[in-house]
Design a protein around this nucleic acid. Structure first.
Ligand code: SF4
Ligand code: SF4
Lengths: 133, 133
DNA sequence: GTATTAGGGATATTAGGAGTCTCTAATATC
DNA sequence: GATATTAGAGACTCCTAATATCCCTAATAC
């Protein structure tokens, strides 16, 4: 069990967009080069991010992507849910009444997700930026 | 990203073995029937549990499996690690010095695993047993 | 109109999970 | 010792999801 590569790419893309000057549009071309990916592949991921409302896209010449207006509220969990979906890690599909196994597994997953929810991308982006200077 | 079915089967198998009378051996046949699985398939999973030291196997006629002597220390995490391996959920394979993304992801995963480590199978088994009576 | 860009859909390709089959090794029982 | 029973190893098939490419369409700037 592992997070998909797409999640990794999505996180890097989001951080990059976070650090753009106000309203600046970045094309998938540039975002793909930055991560050594094919533009068409990254495009699929960006579409997911767009549908999740994390980025906003502008088609046409001089178009591209910019971070959503909710910039300061976007958490790691938001990005992960956009790429991985938000299904449960453990799902036995039977769901016996009051199952204790599910209870433990779900609580554990909840602990992970609450941590991912509490970490905002903007903070990591700012911190990474200040480190480089 | 989802836990494999094997993990589910492993957990149920472990709980079942936990509730056996002292030193009682249970064959893969019975364990498989209980979960409506093919014995050969479950056998693979049991071998993993054996190698992880969670159960002890006895070959030959009247052989089978019993829970390990460490019965009262076995956590959910032990079982999951036996079936899923203990790799990190997030691994970008580059590992930049002081990477902040990894730091967040690893901390979140740690939160999940520490919960899974704190939950002992024996407690869930006992509780489930008492519920049925 | 033309160049540029996002987005959708179809289609490979690959990797791993899920599951079966067969053979071997160990042990109890007779 | 012969036989039945059981764990365990290995090769194999099957299926699904992730990864990735290609091509076409729609929107926009110029
Ligand atoms: S006991 Fe829980 S985990 Fe097991 S089959 Fe029932 S619902 Fe699923
Ligand atoms: S910044 Fe972190 S997550 Fe990104 S490539 Fe470097 S080590 Fe990996």
């Amino acid at each position: 069990m592992r997070y998909s590569n797409a999640t990794n790419y999505a996180l890097h893309t989001m951080v990059h967009l976070m650090l753009q000057p106000r309203e600046n549009l970045v094309g998938v071309q540039e975002l793909a080069e930055m991560q050594h990916l094919s533009p068409t592949y990254l495009s699929k991921i960006l579409t997911k991010l767009t549908k999740a409302g994390l980025v906003e896209s502008t088609p046409g010449a001089k178009g591209g992507y910019k971070i959503s207006r909710t910039k300061h509220e976007i958490s790691f969990l938001d990005v992960i849910n956009a790429t991985e979906g938000d299904n449960s890690l453990f799902d036995c599909s039977i769901h016996h009444e009051g199952c204790l196994i599910e209870k433990v597994m779900w609580q554990a997953e909840e602990n992970m997700k609450s941590e991912l929810k509490s970490k905002l991308l903007i903070d990591i982006a700012k911190e990474a930026e200040s480190k480089q200077e």
